[in-house]
């Protein structure tokens, strides 16, 4: 190449991704122009409430659903239009683990058979396959004794690990995880978080995960995107978001999380986000949020500008940006104060 060497393309990325559900007055924009990139070994969290479009975003990235607009790229190759070879690479290297393994695992297959399915593409000898199954189960912290059992006889935490072992069988480069710790008790959450961290560190596996639990974000994520009504409103390194959230919605989301187990100085009722997110009885139609900031209706700091135009991205420091008019005005004031 004559041109300067371009930076390594991200493993998985999206550009202007958009998806609407429903029709007419009940149309909901689930994902509304999402740009994101996941690099080798990165652990990216997607946070937001139910209905923010988190799960739809994962399905679009796994190419289980077609976007209305925008593109998904795998290692720099557009896979949105089903270019066959690129699509094959995506199917092999990007694995989606569903939130409820009870419905994602075939109830009549044994755990061994479920995990082994993924190994067929490696063309291994049956004896090698059973050794690999045992190794995969061990990698996710499952006892070898579960091989002959069916999903129905396992606990929720065990099923989740089976789904994870199954996804790992094809040796993917990216794992998309929908609520990997939802419904698990504290000690099981700790085991799953540790396993995912170890897989990412030892195999360079990239993770993109959706979660409600901001503490899990802190322990598992290196970077986080905050999704509201299908749009990314803030993104950046997890610790920066945790210690100084910039967008009013991020602040509300973090304030709603009870933080303090056993620290008497922080005890007390968590603060509550004003008003409810959109639901079927209060459909937030495309026409409502086609203009302005989607959060303006719930935001205590909303100004006229917030209801009229979407704020431009404001970049803060390294790899951190927020989309909020209040922040734009702050930058303007700083610029004029520092002016000539």
């Amino acid at each position: 190449m004559n041109a300067p060497e371009p930076a390594t393309p991200p493993l998985l990325s999206s550009c202007g991704l958009k998806k609407t559900h429903g029709q007419g007055a009940r149309t909901v924009v689930a994902v509304d122009g999402v740009d994101l990139a996941v690099h080798d070994g990165e652990r990216v969290a997607v946070v937001g409430e139910s209905g923010a479009g988190k799960s739809t975003l994962l399905r679009l990235l796994a190419r289980l659903q077609d976007p209305d607009e925008g593109a998904v790229e795998f290692v720099g190759v557009d896979v949105t239009r089903r270019a066959s070879t690129a699509m094959g690479a995506l199917r092999r290297h990007v694995q989606l683990v569903f939130p409820d393994p009870a419905t994602a695992l075939h109830p009549l297959l044994s755990v061994g058979a479920l995990v082994e399915e993924g190994l067929h593409i490696h063309g291994l000898h049956p004896t090698e396959r059973s050794a690999r199954v045992a190794a995969l189960l061990a990698a996710v912290g499952l006892d070898g004794g579960v091989v002959g059992r069916r999903p129905g006889s396992l606990s929720g935490g065990q099923r989740r690990r089976v789904a994870l072992a199954r996804a790992l069988a094809v040796e993917p480069r990216v794992l998309l995880l929908d609520e990997p710790t939802a419904g698990l008790d504290v000690t099981a959450v700790a085991r799953v978080v540790n396993e995912l961290n170890a897989l990412s560190t030892t195999r360079g596996l990239a993770l993109l995960f959706v979660t409600h639990d901001l503490h899990v974000v802190r322990h598992l994520g290196t970077r986080a995107l905050v999704l509201y009504a299908g749009r990314v409103v803030e993104e950046g390194p997890v610790e920066a978001l945790w210690s100084a959230p910039q967008h009013p919605y991020t602040r509300a989301l973090f304030a709603a999380q009870p933080r303090a187990v056993g620290r008497s100085d922080e005890r007390g009722a968590p603060r509550v986000v004003a008003a409810a997110p959109p639901t079927a009885t209060t459909p937030t139609t495309a026409s409502i949020w086609v203009r302005g900031c989607a959060y303006a209706a719930r935001c205590a700091e909303a100004s006229v500008a917030c209801r009229q135009d979407e704020a431009p991205w404001v970049t803060i420091g390294v790899a951190r940006r927020v989309r909020c008019h209040a922040r734009v005005e702050l930058e303007d004031r700083r610029a004029s104060a520092a002016g000539p």
Binding site: G157, E239, G262
Partner: peptide, 19 residues
């Protein structure tokens, strides 16, 4: 309590127990 992600410091493995 030690296993609670809310209590542990990020960047280190969470303390766990056998199942």
């Amino acid at each position: 309590l030690g296993a609670a992600p809310a209590r542990a410091l990020p960047g280190t493995p969470l303390p766990t127990l056998p199942p």
